[in-house]
Amino acid sequence: MAERLFKPSVTVAAVVEQQGRFLLVEEETPAGLMLNNPAGHLEQGESPLEAVVREALEETARDFRPEFFLGVYLARTQRVADDVTYVRLAFGGTVGEQIAGRALDAGIVRTLWLTADEIRASAERHRSPLVLQCIEDHLAGRRLPLAALHVHASVKSLS
């Protein structure tokens, strides 16, 4: 049997709206400063909910409380050295106040609260086309129950 070469990268993202503005991060990338939802990679041994709470905290210094599942998104990034397909699990929810003294994750320059129109107008600075798609789905009222995700106990086992 041939070796399986296609290995998508699984990520999680937090979509947070407060008073008509969405929480984004501005981050350093090989292409320069880009905008993204608070997001990152699912790590071995954690559930998607644990991952999105962790990533939001690391990138925004705020506690994220997932309230609904927004959906599963796929996008492909092709660069000179790599070709990656991302599978994004997006969650909507709320955040607390920024935790005083807590540093943002390496590469995160700052957090921003932008309106949907400001986000649409900055599409050329989005880290991924999924940034805006997740926000548009949120605005359209997409809300799936968190129970739509199941994590088998084997994810937590060490063997």
Rank of each mutant, 00 (worst) to 15 (best):
I99E: 08
A121C: 11
R143V: 15
F68H: 09
G40N: 14
V16T: 02
P8L: 01
V10F: 06
A116D: 00
V72K: 10
S47Q: 03
T115P: 07
V52K: 08
I99Q: 13
S47N: 04
Q98F: 09
A14P: 00
V12Y: 06
L130H: 09
F69N: 02
A39T: 08
L35H: 13
R88A: 00
G107A: 06
L104A: 12
R143Q: 13
F68D: 04
H152Q: 11
P129F: 10
M34L: 15
A116Q: 10
L35P: 15
R102Q: 14
F91P: 02
H126I: 05
G71R: 03
H150W: 09
L146F: 12
F6H: 06
V155Y: 09
L130Y: 10
Q78Y: 13
E97L: 07
A140T: 05
G101A: 01
D137I: 04
D83Y: 06
K156A: 09
R54L: 05
S9M: 15
G32K: 07
G93K: 03
N36K: 06
D105F: 09
V95W: 13
A140G: 01
Q78T: 14
I99C: 13
G107S: 07
D82L: 12
G141R: 07
L89A: 02
G40R: 15
R142K: 11
V80R: 13
L114C: 03
E97S: 13
H150F: 03
L33W: 02
V87A: 14
T77P: 05
E124A: 13
A14L: 03
V10S: 13
D117P: 10
Q19A: 01
V87Y: 15
P38L: 01
F6S: 07
Y73R: 06
P66I: 10
